[in-house]
Design a protein around this nucleic acid. Sequence first.
DNA 1: TTGTACGCGTTATCAT
DNA 2: ATGATAACGCGTACAA
Lengths: 342, 342
Amino acid sequence: MKNVTIQDIAERAGVTKATVSMVINQDHRITEKTRDKVLKVIKEMHYYPNPSARKLARGKSDVIAFVSARFAAPFIATVMDAFEQRAFQMGRYVHGIHPYSTQHQTEVKEELLQQILYGRTADAVVLVTIRPSEKIVAEYAERKIPLVLLENTLPGSHSIRVDNVRGGFLATEYLLRQGRKRIGLINGITQPPPGVDLVPSAMERLQGYREALETHGIKFDESRVVSYGDYLFEQGRLGLRVLLEKDPRLDAVFCAAGDIVAMGVLAEAQARGLKVPEDLALVGYDDMLASSLLKPALTTVRQPILQMGVSAFETAIEAIDGKLKEDKNIIIQPELIIRESA
Amino acid sequence: MKNVTIQDIAERAGVTKATVSMVINQDHRITEKTRDKVLKVIKEMHYYPNPSARKLARGKSDVIAFVSARFAAPFIATVMDAFEQRAFQMGRYVHGIHPYSTQHQTEVKEELLQQILYGRTADAVVLVTIRPSEKIVAEYAERKIPLVLLENTLPGSHSIRVDNVRGGFLATEYLLRQGRKRIGLINGITQPPPGVDLVPSAMERLQGYREALETHGIKFDESRVVSYGDYLFEQGRLGLRVLLEKDPRLDAVFCAAGDIVAMGVLAEAQARGLKVPEDLALVGYDDMLASSLLKPALTTVRQPILQMGVSAFETAIEAIDGKLKEDKNIIIQPELIIRESA
DNA sequence: TTGTACGCGTTATCAT
DNA sequence: ATGATAACGCGTACAA
């Protein structure tokens, strides 16, 4: 009925709160005897320390905040899962990972990060695909709360990134090698409207695309590029329509916006009677589970997502433990998975 | 550097902590004048109340715990997303949703639920596909922390469920109507080994399958059923192999274990040169994004996942607000989506 | 509005 | 070496 507190345990065990606390926190200066006695009472009375009181008392929170735009995006869900998996393996922060989402709103993000920082809610913050303002980074640095960025880099914070320039390059170059000349690009937004966050990976993939074209002596043509803020199936259908309208002779699409969007491209192509890859070659990005199951199976750039989650967790732990004197920047290489669509 | 506390604000604004607290909590009995003054200081000094202190002081936590086995499962990620979406819309518990995962381990689950309960960490707990022990339910009831179950029901807690019996029935009956007689079932585990949790939906889909057979005068044959604990692509391949070994004349498969598994079935069928649906009709479960993109497009039972998340959130809020005198049990009807595979 | 006890652990200091 | 005492962390809420 009433909540069991440390005081109750102390009384029942005939010691003081301090002793109970020490038992819980494995302080060495207690006898086996008293410890066993106290532990027994704890079990008996179903005592669980109040985490709020605990946090309040010691400033540390035993929490890592994991901030992303939306939970449902496969990329994010997978990273989060790997992150947590690693936590279980290492036995640290096991129930101490707090996912937050910003719903893509810059304002929510800023507010949230302030809140986490000044509310002392987390020992470290992991940001997936979200770019904090420099002001925030500075404030975190001052209070010594480590930031770990995924898909971003900023001085003053650690980062885990996939080499997106290379990803864009690999995909485009492969298409060129297959003899394609008119390669459309469906991408994320590279010039975000106010209030929407920039996703640098889109810029980088664009750059890779350009570099590959240049390497092969083909001039970059802006009319071959479309950008969308959402990464949905419908964007793929729409994107292909737009690209074909600009040039019906389009012979390939690199869908840097991801495999879901690529699926939309595929559907639209098929609806128009275009054969993939014969009439239109298609390369996606991400390599989701379903990508290999499509007909034709999707050629795509694979992101080592699990590894990103694992590295993010390990980096966060190292930072929390004070083992990182400088920014740690991990770059993971993507891989082109060649299947049937190109 | 040092943390800004309510005390600092009070001093700077020339009032007491109590006043500041009232301002923050929108208590009406304070003058506009003092309120504005206090708010100004709060802004200036970047004051954010310490959530731990706050929770400690008032027993309420402003948190809803959202407990599932794994984050990455598409079903779970989608529910979680809808859940959070609704929170944003309603402006309640906006950053107060704490996802936890149990990694499928019963022990972890029990421990976690105890911790949440006795640690007073949440105002309500939502459990996705996870069944708490009756003991836990009783303990939650006693402490008046509402439980909301998804895909489960237990007296003493609220529930949101999809009518799985009906889902199983719809799929099987449709296959029977198409003239199929030898219908295999690939399902989740209905008799879990110790330490692994029961997923009742598997039982229910099995029941729907049986009922449909009986309705059409076909005897249930246990050798047509295989069960797996994981819902992976590989299970689909394996499942079909096993079923065909038992009866090579199999003419249909209802893959109640979900569309990912169904994709495995499809791949295996195609690898064996079986035409779908001519030689083998296939019905899945879930209706994922990719399901409509396969060749042949997958006929499947659609789960109204978004709606489940929304209902779960609303139910949690109602329960927290004390508006539910009795258990609320919502049942959502699934829908058979007919495409090409059957 | 203010003063202040309270919620619950942690930890520095002190006694044995 | 063990354990007790007491102050502390930060808001909330009730009596005055």
